[in-house]
Design a binder for these strands. Structure first.
Ligand code: MN
Ligand code: MN
Ligand code: ZN
Ligand code: ZN
Lengths: 139, 139
DNA sequence: AATGTAAATTGAAATGATTACAAAAATAAG
DNA sequence: CTTATTTTTGTAATCATTTCAATTTACATT
């Protein structure tokens, strides 16, 4: 996606499309790799002169608050970020640590009997070993 | 549940049923409140003489490894522990921070097309506002 | 283009959760 | 009882994230 489109998208979402914000969103959208803050930092430090890790925290927190990014808590200490805010599920591989998407329609997710509750977010996480690592183990 | 039963259960699961382990499992089983390490610590410190937080980490890690306890990563940094290892879902209230169970049969959970993957764990988390807090807000 | 103001970014220090580790205590075996 | 093994403890180390004051940037107005 073009930086122009990213800017327009951020603006529409009530976020001033400053350079670093556009670069970070651009990274999330193009990579689609559910990165941690550290992954984003070590990738963008080369590209953006004098980037600080604090800025990444700031920007991501803003993105999450504004609803343009999801914070995924699949495992323990690590938070992963996802610019795809549509309904979908996540699989995390125990071996290679990769997180991959799978399509799920909202209607497929069970709707539990929670009388009087207001439900804002659905998260469906699977954990196991991805096909690539399954092959490695068997070999 | 009796401490006797807890001991037998741990033993059957390959865990030596030492005093503190039994007490901690007993707490999890009876309270069913999905506590954090700190909640367990502040509750049991009165009951168990000279209990260390490190021991709680040790014991819980052992429980999780042995499969008698689930570690839930519903939100950010906090890990919550659950002695109910059967298939069920969790709802977390943004207001009161409580985590409650809801029944879900394994067959109700969607089975995504993940060719060649080995799936070990299913986690279904909902977030929102519980009925009690919804009432508080309206009032 | 220069100026002023508000917002964003930075780096260092603070915080909070978890782990590492070595010493002390408890448990099991002989 | 003695000894070997396992567990627990307390402290220090580590790691992720937040706080905060100082600096820089963006941008509207002269
Ligand atoms: Mn995703
Ligand atoms: Mn539960
Ligand atoms: Zn893998
Ligand atoms: Zn509530």
């Amino acid at each position: 996606m073009e930086q122009q489109q990213i800017s327009a998208y951020l603006l529409k979402s009530g976020i001033r499309p400053l350079q670093k914000r556009v670069k970070i969103m651009s990274y999330l959208v193009s990579k689609r790799n559910h990165p941690t803050v550290d992954m984003i930092y070590s990738d963008l430090i080369h590209e953006i002169n004098g980037l600080s890790k604090t800025t990444i925290y700031n920007v991501l927190n803003l993105f999450v608050q504004s609803g343009v990014t999801l914070a995924l808590n699949i495992e323990g200490n690590e938070v992963r970020y996802d610019a795809d805010t549509s309904t979908h599920g996540h699989f995390k591989c125990k071996i290679c640590s990769g997180v991959i998407d799978f399509r799920i329609r909202k209607e497929e997710l069970p709707n539990p009997m929670l009388e009087g509750f207001r439900i804002d977010e659905h998260h469906y996480y699977l954990k196991g070993v991805c096909s690539f690592c399954v092959n490695k183990i068997e070999a």
